[in-house]
């Protein structure tokens, strides 16, 4: 702002404070998402990154990067629960095309299709939906090895039926070189709840500090205008 062509007032500081408050709010949103995902199977947390080139890349310069560390494995004893003990994803057929998931809570329908909890078909290594051509009488007869190869053992005549191999791919959809599929386990999220709670504190204070700065600048602007008005 320019008054009488003489006094310069830089109001950029106020904008910066407002922007910083917006930024903290967006970071809280990412933390918030992680807290919501804490007890979701296969959830991977987002880590907020703030770039120091805020002036060049837009108002926020905030990006969230997915943390692909393996979460906690939990024993469920369900023969159709699978957990990836390594980085990677299962492929599922959704109405919007093939999607990746780490959620290995699978079930069978009456036709022998392997489905996720959302009723999407799970893909095998050949890119086709995995289908059990031999339905087991008892789910306990399903054996899945480390590479995701599924077999059904028929206890009546002790025959082993090959069903197929479940696809485990990396983020670029190319097959994993080394698999570690754990049957009877599910992978819980990799969110560390207390860490998220601590990070909230700093965001909270950062927001307050910026708010305080805004108020100080606003006050001094008000004072300046009042003093000028007197003269």
């Amino acid at each position: 702002m320019k008054l009488y062509g003489q006094i310069h007032l830089d109001e950029g500081g106020m904008y910066k404070s407002v922007r910083a408050m917006h930024l903290q709010q967006s970071i809280i949103d990412i933390t918030n998402q992680n807290i919501v995902g804490f007890n979701k199977v296969g959830y991977q947390k987002d880590v907020p990154y703030v770039s120091s080139f805020a002036e060049y890349v837009g108002s926020h310069a905030l990006s969230a990067q997915r943390d692909d560390e393996v979460g906690r494995l939990k024993l469920t004893q369900n023969p159709l629960d699978m957990a990836l003990g390594c980085k990677g994803y299962f492929q599922v057929q959704t109405p919007n095309g093939v999607k990746l998931t780490r959620d290995g809570r699978f079930k069978l329908d009456k036709d022998g299709n392997l489905l996720t909890v959302e009723d999407f078909k799970v893909l095998a290594t050949d890119g086709e939906p995995l289908r059990f051509n031999k339905l087991p009488r008892d789910l306990e007869n399903i054996k899945i090895d480390k590479n995701g190869h599924i077999k059904v053992i028929d206890p009546e005549n002790l025959k082993i039926h090959d069903i197929g191999t479940i696809a485990a791919v990396d983020a670029q959809s190319s097959p994993l070189k080394e698999n570690s599929i754990n049957q009877r386990y599910v992978e819980e999220s990799n969110v560390i709840l207390h860490q998220e709670a601590y990070s909230l504190l700093t965001m909270r204070r950062n927001f307050q500090a910026n708010r305080q700065l805004f108020i100080i600048q606003s006050d001094s602007l008000t004072k300046t205008l009042q003093e000028l008005g007197k003269a």
Partner: peptide, 27 residues
């Protein structure tokens, strides 16, 4: 685990509520 999840959710709601209040009372 569920208890922890609910507690942290309500805690974040409280923080967001404070931010809301502070943003409205910025002046």
């Amino acid at each position: 685990k569920l208890n922890g999840s609910i507690i942290s959710s309500t805690r974040v709601i409280k923080i967001l509520d404070e931010i809301y209040k502070e943003s409205i009372n910025l002046r």
